[in-house]
Amino acid sequence: MHIRVATVDDAPELLAIYAPYVEGTAITAEYEVPTEDEFRGRIAHTLERYPYLVAVSDESDLAGVDSQGRILGYSYVSPLNTRAAYDQSVETSIYVSRDARGRGVGRALHDRLVKILTSMNVTNMCACISATQAQDDPYLTDASIRFHERMGYRMVGRFDGCQNKFGRWYDMVWMERVIARHVIPAPKFKPFPTIKSIA
């Protein structure tokens, strides 16, 4: 597996990964699957300022699940808030193909984001995560919360019943990982297009 920067031409594959999350889970708050054109626009808009990465299979596996060059997952960041004082803080998003979960794809994408964001002078990585209080919810588990805990995030807030999907109310939690010291003066934010390497 290797990590590269996404392109707008990846939209069909990324949408195939994302659609099941929209249609069958409360992980995303979207009700409708975006069109390919809309998804291309999202990728292009993100890359104007922030990283958008894909994890790609390097070779076929014995079970025939992977083929070389297949996208296994993707990640990107967006502004935590669009006002200038929040430049050093971002919101992270990671989606992994359902048949590629448990194979380190999410961790690989996240670890690469940390390196890139550090070089961009980002200090805070934040994750907005849907949460349920039901132990047997058919649309949501706490897997994303557990993943972020393993990535070094801590819980910083919870909003009660602020999302409604599939006729159910869901909470939303904020988790945060601080990846750089908060110094004065703050180092200037560097937009992703100015970064020379994603290694």
Results as ranks from 00 to 15, higher is better:
Val183Pro: 12
Ala11Cys: 06
Tyr21Val: 10
Cys162Leu: 05
Gln68Ser: 15
Ala16Pro: 13
Gln163Thr: 11
Asp66Ile: 01
Lys196Ala: 14
Asp99Phe: 04
Pro138Leu: 04
Asp142Gly: 12
Ile179Asn: 03
Ala6Asp: 09
Gln68Gly: 13
Leu62Asn: 15
Ile184Leu: 11
Arg42Cys: 08
Arg154Gly: 14
Glu36Asp: 10
Leu14Tyr: 01
Tyr139Gln: 07
His110Ile: 02
Val90His: 02
Arg112Ser: 13
Pro187Cys: 03
Ile3Gln: 05
Asp10Tyr: 08
Met155Tyr: 09
Tyr139Pro: 13
Val90Asp: 10
Ala19Ser: 14
Ser60Gln: 13
Tyr95Pro: 15
Val65Leu: 00
Leu140Gln: 03
Arg158His: 09
Ile43Ala: 03
Tyr86Thr: 13
Met120Trp: 05
Val183Gly: 07
Asp9Phe: 04
Tyr153Glu: 10
Asp137Met: 03
Val173Thr: 06
Phe39Gln: 07
Ser67Tyr: 05
Ile198Met: 01
Thr46Ile: 13
Ala131Arg: 01
Tyr76Arg: 02
Gly102Gln: 06
Glu30Ser: 12
Ser78Ala: 10
Ala84Leu: 08
His45Lys: 14
Thr118Tyr: 06
Pro20Glu: 05
Glu59Val: 12
Gln135Pro: 15
Gln163Phe: 01
Phe192Lys: 03
Val56Glu: 14
Ile17Phe: 03
Thr82Gly: 10
Asp137Thr: 08
Lys188Pro: 14
Asn164Tyr: 11
Asp37Arg: 04
Ile27Gln: 05
Val114Met: 05
Pro20Gln: 05
Asp61Gly: 09
Arg107Gln: 11
Ala127Ser: 11
Ile71Val: 14
Gly104Gln: 03
Asp10Arg: 00
Phe192Ala: 02
